[in-house]
Simulated scan of single mutants.
Amino acid sequence: MREPVEVRRQRILAAIEARGAARVSDLAAELQVSAVTVRRDVEELAREGRLRRGHGVVRSALAAQELPAATPPEGDTVAVVVPERHSYLYEALHGARAVLEAAGRRIALHIAPQVAGAERPLVERALADGAAGLLLAPRWRTRADEEGDYAWLAALGVPAVLMERRPRPGSALHAMDSVCTDHGYGAHLAVEHLVGLGHRRIVFATRDDSPTARTLRSAFAAIAEAHPLVEAWAWTLSAPEAGRDGPYTAGETAELPALLREVGATAAVLHGDVDALMLVQQLADDGVRVPHDCSVVAYDDVVAGLGTTPLTAVAPPKGDVGRAAAELLLQRLAAPRGAAGPVRRVELLPALSVRGSTRARSGAAASAG
Rank of each mutant, 00 (worst) to 15 (best):
R50K: 13
V82W: 11
L45S: 01
A61Q: 12
V38P: 00
R40C: 06
R50W: 13
E48Y: 08
R47W: 06
A46F: 04
P83S: 13
L45K: 12
R50T: 09
R85A: 14
H55C: 02
V57G: 00
R39K: 11
A79I: 06
E66W: 03
T37M: 08
V80P: 11
E44T: 14
E43P: 00
R52I: 07
G56P: 03
D41I: 12
P72G: 00
V36I: 05
R52A: 04
A64G: 10
V80I: 14
A79G: 15
G49V: 13
A35E: 13
S60A: 07
V58A: 09
D76P: 00
L89V: 15
V81E: 03
V42D: 07
E74M: 04
S87V: 04
R40D: 03
L62T: 09
T71Q: 07
V58W: 05
G49S: 15
R53F: 02
G49I: 06
R52F: 10
G75Y: 06
V78K: 13
A61S: 14
P83T: 10
D41N: 14
R50F: 06
L51I: 11
H86D: 15
L51N: 08
L67H: 05
S60T: 06
D76S: 12
R59K: 06
V33F: 00
R40T: 12
V82Q: 01
L89W: 10
A64K: 03
R85C: 08
V80F: 11
V58R: 05
A46C: 07
P83C: 05
S60I: 04
Q32A: 14
H55M: 04
L67N: 05
L62V: 12
G54K: 05
E48N: 11
A35V: 04
A64R: 01
A69Y: 02
V58H: 08
S34N: 08
D41Q: 14
S60F: 07
E44R: 15
A70H: 07
T77Q: 12
S87M: 03
A70I: 00
P68W: 04
V78P: 01
L51M: 10
R39T: 11
L45F: 09
A61W: 10
V78A: 05
A70F: 00
L51E: 00
V36L: 07
T77W: 01
E44G: 03
A70D: 00
S60N: 04
L89S: 04
L45A: 10
L67I: 01
D76E: 12
R59F: 06
L67P: 01
E66L: 05
A69V: 04
T77A: 12
Q65I: 02
V38M: 10
L31W: 08
A63F: 09
E74D: 07
V81D: 00
V81H: 07
E44L: 15
Q32S: 13
R40N: 14
